[in-house]
Simulated scan of single mutants.
Amino acid sequence: MGRPNRLHFDGEATADRQAIRTGDTNKYIPKMKMFSHAIIVLLALGAAALAFGFVLFAVSVTRDDAADLDKADGIVVLTGGDNRIEAGAKLMSEGRAKRMLISGVNRKVSREEMQRIVRIDNKVFNCCVDLGYEALDTVGNADETRTWANTNGYTKLIVVTSRYHMPRSLAELALVMPGVTLLPYAVTPKRFPETAWWLHVATTKVLLSEYLKFLPAVARLTAQRVIDWRDGQSVAIMPQKRADG
């Protein structure tokens, strides 16, 4: 009787092991496909939600929804855009608040130069207009405004900035000043289309950039309110009054 062919048995064992491995893999293929499909669906839904949110954001900041504006303790003008300082000066001239802070002033601009820009009564400017030189961005504006409001004991502020910048500004201000009422006064920049914004590439880029900055700001605000809820938090409402450029 001849000896078994070892090579033959080794070949069969190898084939069996490959079959087992192949069988195990085939068993998990449907689950892997389902997982991949779920990831794709979630990514698609996330992209759709971002796109839909952007459209809502763009429509809200280009919409004319002017309304009456209540008086407040102070006015805060966030520099960085057309007509913001002029709008704040107009509100001060109307007696809408006791004092005005211009936040984020360029350090090269003197108080005398700013007085010429503001164009309000010298007596009002000298007594009731404060210049903030520390803020370099919107987060800095919020910190500078908080210090100013706390120093003066203010709990109700009119916020003046561009329409597209208003949602993020309100979120950043509310984040550092819970309990302070914020009244938005939105300014429309020059050459900023109020209709068919999607037909203007430059405008769409500005809106998209601001929207992507707004999302983390509102996320931080929401997280703070969920984790560390405090009474009397300010509500970032949409602009009530606007000024045309």
Rank of each mutant, 00 (worst) to 15 (best):
I117L: 10
A97R: 06
E144W: 02
E94G: 01
V105T: 08
M114F: 11
N106Q: 15
E113G: 04
N141S: 12
I117Q: 09
R116C: 03
I117P: 05
G88S: 05
G132P: 05
E94T: 07
V124N: 01
I117M: 11
V124F: 10
N106V: 06
T138P: 06
R116G: 11
M100R: 03
F125M: 00
M114W: 06
R116H: 14
G104D: 09
G95L: 00
A142L: 04
A135W: 12
G104S: 13
E144R: 12
G88Y: 13
L101E: 04
E112T: 02
G132F: 06
K90E: 11
D130I: 00
Y133N: 08
K98V: 11
E112G: 06
M100C: 02
L91S: 00
C127V: 07
A97N: 12
T138N: 07
E144M: 03
R99Y: 04
A135V: 05
R111L: 02
E112S: 12
K98I: 15
K123E: 15
K108N: 14
D143G: 14
V109M: 08
V139D: 14
K108Y: 15
A89C: 11
A135Y: 03
M114I: 04
N126H: 13
I120Q: 01
A135R: 07
A142K: 10
R99P: 00
D130L: 01
V129Q: 02
V124K: 09
A142P: 12
D130C: 04
K98W: 06
G140H: 09
L136M: 15
V109C: 00
E134P: 04
T145C: 12
V105Q: 06
E113T: 07
F125V: 03
V109Q: 01
M114L: 13
R116F: 05
D137A: 08
Q115L: 01
E144H: 09
C127W: 02
V139G: 14
R119G: 11
R96Q: 15
R96K: 15
N122H: 12
D137Q: 03
S93L: 04
E94C: 12
R119W: 01
V105I: 09
K98Q: 11
G140N: 15
I120W: 07
T138D: 04
E144T: 11
L131S: 09
G104Y: 00
R119H: 13
V129E: 09
L131R: 14
S103W: 07
M114H: 05
A142F: 02
N106D: 15
R107C: 10
N126V: 14
F125D: 03
V129H: 06
E94I: 00
N122V: 02
L136C: 02
F125S: 10
V124M: 05
E134Q: 13
I120F: 09
N141M: 12
